[in-house]
Write a protein that binds this DNA or RNA. Sequence first.
DNA 1: AGAGTTGTTCAAGC
DNA 2: AGCTTGAACAACTC
Length: 242
Amino acid sequence: MIGGNVISAISPQGRFAEGAAVINGATCEGTGAVGKHLLYHFSNGQTLHIHLGLGGYFVCQSQPADPPRDVVRIRLESATHCIDIIGPNTCELMPTAEMPAFTLRYGPDLLSDTPEPERAIAAIRKSRAPIARLLMDQKVISGIGNIYRAEILWLRKLNPMTRGVDIDADDLRDLWDEMRQLLQIGVETNAIITNGNVDMTGEEITERTNIFARDFCPTCGGAIEKSKLSGRTLYHCPKCQA
DNA sequence: AGAGTTGTTCAAGC
DNA sequence: AGCTTGAACAACTC
């Protein structure tokens, strides 16, 4: 989106303040991602590392843009457009040279052009932790959050508490493939759609998930069970995911 | 007003 | 060593 554009950065508050001057005036030469970590590579050898966390978001404007609100952590701007990043969990500069090591700290990215499912499968099958926890562990696999976790386990009729070590490698390959497909739909539609209502994107969609934040299972009509795992709400159908 | 949230990391305990 | 929980973090919504 901003590749090739000259940008400038401001930072009224937060951890990025010190780095702002370093990036000012540099050109973005490319972007990348490792799971939910967003990466902008700049001409001065620095990479801007953004993680939106729970509540972070982008605000895009045409120039001339409004002055930044005080919650704006960094502003990326070109002659024609302006992007403000608000509420990120992480907003820091790191040397682009450190990117290979950074990438290795995380499990394989489901959306990578060079997917490495076997790396994730090996990590899962080595663990006695429940699959619901492993899918959320970005050191195991990159890209799944709470919504996709609930949906994919339901789609594959997997009990969330199944230990990683107890799942067949072939089942995990199917799981990988389906997660990848779901995320690709997300990229194409800019929405989290796991129930197949892909063509309704322009319309008012109230049902895009099957069980996430829902009360009843679309398959059996039974009550969706709501629990906590690692501090996050876990949804599952006790009947269909026995 | 306070709790909850499409997330991560760290520390501590078992 | 592997696994678990809890706290802290930002900003918004209900």
